[in-house]
Simulated scan of single mutants.
Amino acid sequence: MTHETRPFQVDIPEAEISELKRRIKATRWPEKETVGDESQGVRLETIREVARYWLGQYDWRKIESKINSYPNFLTEIDDLDFHFIHVRSKHENALPILVAHGWPGSIIEQMKLIQPLTDPTAHGGSADDAFHVVIPSMPGYGFSGKPSATGWNPERIARAYGELMARLGYTRYVAQGGDWGAIVVNAMGVQEPAGLLGIHTNMPEVIPPEVDAAIWSGNLLPSNLSDEERTACEQVRENKFAYAFLMGTRPQTLTGLVDSPIGLAAFMIDHDWKSHSMIARSFAGVDEGLTPDDVLDNVSLFWFTGTAISAARLYWETTVAGLSFFAVKGVKLPVACSVFPDEMYQAPRSWAEKAYPKLIHYNKLPKGGHFAAWEQPDHMVSEIRTGLRSLR
């Protein structure tokens, strides 16, 4: 194993961009859905608009240039290449932060945070709010290596992230995450790698184990739940998680996702129903949260890196390991929680206080959903600054 850190730049060949467009043009379309809403999945009208925009208006080179405007690196950890963006603040007392993405996300999901976190005086903050920012690509995602053997579950990724921060020379740092990123930094909170002061999460893992088991089994919920706790359970159930069950049991069957860009886009858009609806509205011309360019930046990254299957295996690894998405894991370090209204479930304060005995921040936001850093970066920046301030 080498501890060398190598500079990296993105350079997708023009021939691959042309091939992407050829495949979009060659799409074989299904018939229109037989319902008047999104209950059967991504509507034909929406995915046709995705194709039209992808072919006629989208420019991959813009996001490629944006990625390359930041320092990108590769380093080998546990026999696998890890890609990461590393931007140091000009402010002397900046606090290092690892920011972790999830599925169907990537480094693109958190890039809107970089400038406000590293240069707060230019973005409504003070020098005391400054962070050095590290954004890694998960194994099998983006420009990181694709595991060729089993075992890369969230707990192993958490250990690798701890090693990455140590390798960068950070002896005091914090970590933030949403979706899988939340699960990974939660695991870091359990493992307590040297230097980790605390974590910030926008998808808290706070559901009591017995309640979590009842949610997923379909059994009756405990009778002693508060109205807020019962609502949280119902929110988890209403999301269905069809994509997660498929990737968690049969990821290799999703071969079509590396063959059809439109198939990949449709699968990635149909995450949770609130994000799905917001993305559909954005392609219909409604200006909110994510833009069509935001969405296609991320889908295109998955397409060009051929990572649909390698990323999906993380769900299988988690299933095999018997890990829960939302149940309490036993974090003892300080934790800051931000609860967005359109998240897959709104974590109640009552559960957060029990799950995280050192809860240092809990706040419900007025707007935002599952991809909060991507959709509402101003809110997320404020939450990171405020939530982790006491750890400086």
Rank of each mutant, 00 (worst) to 15 (best):
W216V: 05
W216N: 02
W216C: 03
W216G: 00
S217Y: 10
G218Y: 09
G218V: 09
N219H: 14
L220T: 15
L220I: 12
L221S: 06
L221F: 08
L221M: 10
L221Y: 05
S223V: 13
N224Y: 08
L225E: 03
L225T: 02
L225W: 03
L225R: 02
S226T: 08
E228C: 02
E228G: 00
E229M: 01
E229G: 04
E229D: 11
E229N: 08
R230H: 06
T231H: 14
T231C: 14
A232K: 01
A232S: 07
C233N: 05
C233V: 06
C233G: 08
E234A: 11
E234N: 13
E234K: 08
E234H: 11
Q235K: 07
Q235R: 04
V236E: 11
N239T: 14
K240E: 12
F241S: 01
F241E: 00
A242E: 11
A242V: 13
A242P: 06
Y243Q: 10
A244T: 04
A244W: 00
L246Y: 09
L246D: 11
L246E: 12
L246N: 12
M247Q: 11
M247V: 06
G248S: 07
G248L: 06
T249R: 04
R250P: 00
Q252L: 06
Q252H: 10
Q252F: 05
